[in-house]
C-alpha cells in the first residue's frame, strides 16, 4: 500500500494521474458483477442464439439442397415417364394405324373378290340362261315354224320331210344373239 502513498498535493490538485485504489477496486467489483450478470442473462443466451441460428440456417440449406435434389430427381423421373408414355402412345397409334390399314386392305380385297365372284357367277349364269333360252327359243321357233308351216302346207308335205327342210333352214340362220 506504500505504493499508493502519493504525495498529497498531486491528489489535491485533481491531477489526471491521481491514484485512487478505491476506484480501481470499485471498477473491479462493478466489472465482475457485470460479467456475472451479463454472462448468465445475455452473452450465454445470445451466443446460444447465434449458434442456434447458424445451425438452423445450415440445416435449412442442407434440407433445401436435399429437397432440391429430390425434386430434380422426381422431375427427371416425371419427364422420363412422360416421354415413355408419349412413345408408347405413338407406338400404339402407329400399330393401330397399321392394323386398320391391313384390315382395310383385307376387307377391300375380300369385297373386291366377292364382287368379282358375284359378277363372274352372274355372267356365267347369264350365259347359261341365255344359251338355255336360245335353245328353247330355237326349239320353240322350230315348233312354231313347223306348226305354222304344217298348217300352211299340211297337204303337200309330210311332216318328216318338212321338218328336215326347216331344220336345214334354221341351221343356215346365223347363230349368236337372237
Amino acid at each position: 500500500m506504500a505504493l499508493f502513498a502519493v504525495p498529497a498535493p498531486v491528489i489535491a490538485a485533481g491531477s489526471l494521474t491521481t491514484i485512487n485504489p478505491g476506484l480501481t477496486l470499485w471498477t473491479a467489483i462493478t466489472f465482475l458483477l457485470l460479467l456475472g450478470v451479463l454472462y448468465k442473462f445475455a452473452w450465454g443466451p445470445i451466443v446460444k442464439m447465434l449458434d442456434d441460428r447458424a445451425r438452423t440456417i445450415h440445416e435449412a440449406i442442407d434440407a433445401a439442397r436435399k429437397e432440391r435434389a429430390e425434386a430434380e430427381r422426381m422431375l427427371a423421373e416425371q419427364k422420363e415417364s412422360l416421354a415413355r408414355a408419349t412413345r408408347e402412345a405413338a407406338e400404339l397409334a402407329k400399330r393401330n394405324q397399321q392394323e386398320v390399314e391391313t384390315l382395310r386392305q383385307e376387307l377391300t380385297a375380300r369385297a373386291r373378290k366377292e364382287a368379282d365372284e358375284l359378277v363372274s357367277s352372274a355372267r356365267k349364269q347369264i350365259i347359261e340362261e341365255k344359251s338355255k333360252a336360245v335353245l328353247e327359243i330355237r326349239s320353240m321357233a322350230a315348233d312354231l315354224a313347223i306348226d305354222a308351216a304344217s298348217r300352211l302346207i299340211k297337204s303337200s308335205l309330210d311332216e318328216k320331210a318338212q321338218r328336215a327342210l326347216v331344220e336345214d333352214y334354221i341351221k343356215q340362220l346365223p347363230t349368236g344373239r337372237a
Binding site: F4, P21, G22, W26, T27, T30, L33, L34, L38, A42
Partner: peptide, 26 residues
C-alpha cells in the same frame, strides 16, 4: 487506510453507465 472506497464521481458515472448497459442489453 490507504484504500478509500468512498465512491467518487467516476464510480457513480461508471455505475450509471453499467446500469444503462444492463438495461439495454438485458
Amino acid at each position: 487506510g490507504a484504500v478509500d472506497l468512498t465512491p467518487t464521481k467516476h464510480v457513480i458515472m461508471m455505475w450509471l453507465a453499467s446500469a444503462l448497459l444492463l438495461l439495454v442489453v438485458l
